[in-house]
Design a protein around this nucleic acid. Structure first.
Lengths: 243, 243
DNA sequence: ACCTGAACACCGTTCAAGT
DNA sequence: ACCTGAACACCGTTCAAGT
C-alpha cells in the first residue's frame, strides 16, 4: 500500500484522504461489519467501482484508516524519565485503541508500514535506547512493550464488547442454562470459581485500568532489572524503584 | 454457544464434532478466507443449510474450533517451580498458535468460554497463586502473562505471514519504489534505520524465539519483584534470580 | 428429527463503456 | 483521467417442503 503513490490530481471528486475520511466514522460507529466498499461509495456520492481507482483492495482502505488513527497517539521522545515516557506512550495508545476498537484488528493482522506507525516506533526506540538497551535487546524490549499493550487492550475490548452485547440481548447471566453451565465450571475449577464470584459486581472501567497499570508496572520493573543486569554501570542507584 | 446444548442424537449424519472436524483442517490449510459454510457442508457431503441445525451461526463453528485447538495445549499445574510452569504454559500456547494461526483471531475477538479454555485458565491461576498472588492481583498477573503471549504471537505471525507473502509475489524488497520509500523512512528515523539494517539477513525463526524468551523472562522478573514486594515473607531468598 | 433446494440480501472486484 | 453500470463469483442465513 505505502509503496503505491497516489495519482496526481486533476479534476477528480475523490482522493485517498476522502476515502479514509468516510471509512473511519463508519468503522467507529458500526465496526468492521458496517464497512463495505458500497457503503463508502454511497457516503461519498459515488459508485463502488470508483474507489478502485484510488485503492487496489478493501484492505488498502483499512491500512490507510489505521495509519490515520495512529496519528492520534502522541508521545514525547524527550521525556527525561524513560519509564514515564514509555508509560505515557502505552496509555495513549490504549486510549486511542479504545476510541477506535476496529483498529486493533488492523494493527494485528499485518505489520504496519505507514508513516505514523514509523514515527511512533522511533519514539519508543528512542526512549528505550536511553534506558540502556541496544541492538537485538532494543528490538526485543520494544516488542515486549508493544505486545503487552496490544494484548491487554485486545482482551479488554473483547470483554467489554461481550458485556454490552449481553446487556442488549437481555440479562443472560441469570438464565437457567447459563447458571447451570457456570456452576458446572465452578465445581471443576475452584480458583476460577473464586475469581468469578469476586468479579460479579465489578466496575469494568476501573478494573481494566487497574489491570493495565499492573501489567505496565510489572513490565517496566522487568525491563529495569534486565537492562541493569546487562549494563550495571549505567544506573548505580540503590534500588530500581519498581512501581 | 456453550450454553446451547447439542441436540440428542438419533439417525443423523452430522454432529458438532463432525463440523469442527471438517472446519479445523480447512482453517489450517486455507485460513479464514478458505472457510465457508458451503465449504464445510460439501466436505461433509451435505447442504449448507443443514449445518444450521447444529449451530446457530458461523461464529459458533469458529468458537468450537478454537476450543478444540486449545485442547492441544497441555501444562502441568503441579510443576514445583511456578516460573517454570508458567514459562512452559506460555511456550506451549505459542507453539499451538503457530500451528493454528487462525486461532489467534478467534482467541482475541471474544472472551473464551469453552471447557478447554477454562481448564487452561485454572492451571495458570494455580501456578500464580502458588507464587503468592491472590485476589485482584491474581487476576491481573494472569492477564498480564496471557496478554504478553497473545500480543507476541500476533506480532510474530503478522510478520511471518508478510514475509511468505512477499516471497510468493517476488522479492519486492528490491523494487525501486520500495527502496525509495524505505530510504525516506530511514532518513527521518535514525534508530529505526539502524534496526532495519540489522534485520536484513536475520533468521525469523531464531529471532522470534529470542524475542519471545526475552519478553517471558522480563515479565517473570517483573512478576517476581511484584509478588516479593507484596508478600515479602513468602520467599526469603537472597535474590529473585531474574533470567 | 433432520436435511434439501431455493431463495434473499448482501459482499469484493472487474471492466467495458462513457465523458 | 476519472467515473458509471452492470456483471461475476461468491458470501451467511432463512425457510418452506420433503422424508
Amino acid at each position: 500500500m505505502w509503496l503505491r503513490r497516489e495519482r496526481p490530481l486533476r479534476d477528480r471528486r475523490l482522493s485517498r484522504a476522502h476515502i479514509v475520511g468516510a471509512a473511519v466514522p463508519v468503522l467507529d460507529t458500526e465496526g468492521h461489519r458496517g464497512l463495505s466498499m458500497r457503503r463508502i461509495a454511497t457516503d461519498l456520492g459515488v459508485t463502488a467501482g470508483s474507489l478502485y481507482w484510488y485503492v487496489r483492495t478493501k484492505d488498502d482502505v483499512l491500512e490507510l484508516a489505521l495509519d490515520r488513527v495512529l496519528g492520534e497517539v502522541n508521545a514525547d521522545p524527550e521525556e527525561p524519565d524513560w519509564r514515564h515516557g514509555l508509560a505515557a506512550l502505552a496509555r495513549n495508545t490504549r486510549a486511542m485503541l479504545l476510541r477506535h476498537r476496529w483498529a486493533l484488528l488492523e494493527l494485528t493482522v499485518r505489520p504496519n508500514l505507514g508513516p505514523n506507525a514509523f514515527t511512533l516506533a522511533e519514539t519508543g526506540l528512542h526512549l528505550l535506547s536511553r534506558a540502556g538497551f541496544a541492538d537485538a535487546d532494543l528490538d526485543a524490549a520494544m516488542a515486549t512493550v508493544n505486545d503487552q499493550v496490544v494484548g491487554a487492550v485486545i482482551a479488554e475490548v473483547a470483554w467489554r464488547d461481550t458485556l454490552t452485547r449481553m446487556r442488549e440481548s437481555g440479562a443472560e447471566w441469570t438464565q437457567h442454562a447459563t447458571t447451570a453451565y457456570l456452576r458446572d465450571v465452578a465445581a471443576r475449577h475452584p480458583l476460577l470459581a473464586h475469581r468469578m464470584a469476586a468479579g460479579k459486581g465489578a466496575d469494568v472501567e476501573r478494573d481494566s485500568e487497574r489491570r493495565f497499570e499492573f501489567a505496565l508496572s510489572c513490565l517496566l520493573a522487568g525491563l529495569s532489572a534486565t537492562c541493569d543486569a546487562t549494563i550495571p554501570s549505567e544506573h548505580p542507584q540503590a534500588a530500581p524503584a519498581a512501581r
